[in-house]
Design a protein around this nucleic acid. Sequence first.
RNA 1: GGCGGCGUAGCUCAGUUGGUUAGAGCAUCGGAAUCAUAAUCCGAGUGUCCGGGGUUCAAGUCCCUGCGCCGCUACCA
Length: 674
Amino acid sequence: MSKYIVTSALPYANGKLHIGHLAGAYLPADIFVRFLKLKNEDVIYICGTDEHGAPISIKAEAEGVSPKDIANRYHEKIKEGFDAVGIEFDNFSGTDRQIHYKLSQDFFKDLDKNGFISIKTSKQLYCEHDKKFLADRYVEGICPFCGYEGARGDQCDNCGKLIDATALIEPKCMICGNTPVVKETTHWFLDLPKFGDKLKNWIGTKSFWKDNVHKFIMSWLESGLIERAITRDLKWGIPLPIEGNDDKVLYVWFEAPIGYISSTIEWAKNQGDDDLWKKYWMDENTKLIHFIGKDNIPFHTIIWPALLMGQDKNFVLPYDVPANEYLNLEGKQLSTSRNWAIWVDEIAKDFDGEYVRYYLAANAPETKDSDFVWKDFQNSINNDLANVLGNLANRVFTFIAKFYDGKISKYSEVSDSALELLNSAKKIIREVETCYQNYKVRKATKLIIDLARLGNKYFDERKPWKMVKENKEGASETLYVCYQILEIISILFTPVFPKKMSKLRASMNLKSDFNWDDLCTEITDDVTIGEFKPLFTKIEDKEIDTQIEKLFANLKSKKKEKIVHKEDIEFDDFEKMELRIVKIIEVEKIKKSKKLLKILVDLDGEKRTVLSGIAKNYKPKDLIGKKVVMLINLKPKKMMGELSQGMILAATNGDKLSLLTLDREDLDIGSPIS
RNA sequence: GGCGGCGUAGCUCAGUUGGUUAGAGCAUCGGAAUCAUAAUCCGAGUGUCCGGGGUUCAAGUCCCUGCGCCGCUACCA
């Protein structure tokens, strides 16, 4: 028997969980693990929060608490979210614990000793007031690309581009507000290219990996591996284990995946056997399976395996990395910043957590992005669960109670239709098993609901309500067979509905200690049913309408961004700008660009070429003849091989854009603006 | 522009290595039934499988091309 370590991506401890997280990395893993446990496999399910990095320490400083407080707070919130929907880890740790510190430092030391670490100096922003390097989010300034004022040191929130902090215009230290200086700093790099061949060979053995994962890795490998910095100038994190460098910490992406191991070590200690973790991590037969979202593919298939390969200890390498695609919400991509999301704790408050499990399982983004649609959520629950499965259970139970005082016996003769049904059930059992084994949760749920449909069909065909009047014995066969079908479903659906199915089994007076093999043994005893209440209650239209309203209300409330005023300027400053009316005479698209238009304008005889990023909002032919406002004396700039001599003014709001035009057409070209 | 993905019934999607008359659920219409949470069951379907070309005895599936949409990326003076 092989052992399994199943992990889900470590959630970052500075925010809550939303349904996209669940659908991608947690629910599929949880279902897989519950399935393996049903099969009595030796499996541990490991996770924990990722607690270091700049965003957490910045939030901490903003709130005047310690980073640890932030990490602890969200660790608890995230855990509550998981509990609410029944995601059950064998261990849920965090990366700010001693075990993890030591292990991460050991990882670094081994890599260093084995020649996989190099040192480089580079330029970074340094605040002389706070005496520290301003990594990533510790600095804000004007985005060199879009001009957005709140751009961070690593990325601009407005245009989404990655930024080299030294390129920021008017950078400001987030702590004191002073202007930082550019200073050299030293960083340690992981020499990824040295692992190139080894990685290629290893990945070559992974032909069974999901197609999307394989494609992603190959394009990464082909574009060439580069050395990657694994240290940061921060206080919050795991200190670099090299003397005299206590101002450096290991970068989160380096240490976070090590959390899978340290969480397992913690688990072993809790089990009272400190070395137990080695039996999993150091056995080459262990199947290490990482469930992640698609954004995590390179880390888990290239960098993390490289880290493992560079160790003295023989750690097992990932066996499989089933990466899921994204879950959209009502047709649009989930977005935390725009508040376009459904939070796990909130949905679990309004609906049964297992409804959420079912819907997300039935719509898992396994091969492509899928969509969470509230109306569809309601439909799935009401039709599949309440009407099909719930009703099957309900009609069988009430029938047995009503006509047989809650007790029926094994039938003596089996009808053809019963045989047919039981054979279909056997086939479905095999198919469901294959699906679970291959992370195909979506198909598994569909198959099980199909079985419930077959049950209803069989019940209708046999018409026990009629037969019971003439041949009570014969009618009991139908009930007995349906009872068997329900028993099968109670096992098949346990990975998805652990609670509901155990409730169902309790009503059926079935043993609470059961496993997958029980699917092969037919019940032959008399059965007595217990107390029964409907398994699934329907979701009313009103409830869904409320949710939809809430969703859009959130969106609106977030859309209103505060207007941040700029510093006052002198009239002279304004006078410096030469703004004039120009007429557009020729427009053509720049082939290589989606947004840029090349515009030729007439400035009272003089002609100028301007590039403008308005191709998404205006068609070239609609622009010709328009009189617009242009900044004339802006320094010319080359873009996409063309020289732009000025800037056409436009108002923007999100995707909307409008050129500034005149409300009196008779004004001359070249008229100044003042 | 580069890389990747997608385009199948009104809607959400299945469609394995090319192989009979292209499927499921929902919604719609008609019927049966009354054990059951008005639940269930049966029947009816509607399709230029995005367009065009090609390979093949055979294409939703493979190749080329055009269009449309999405994601990442570059671009936004």
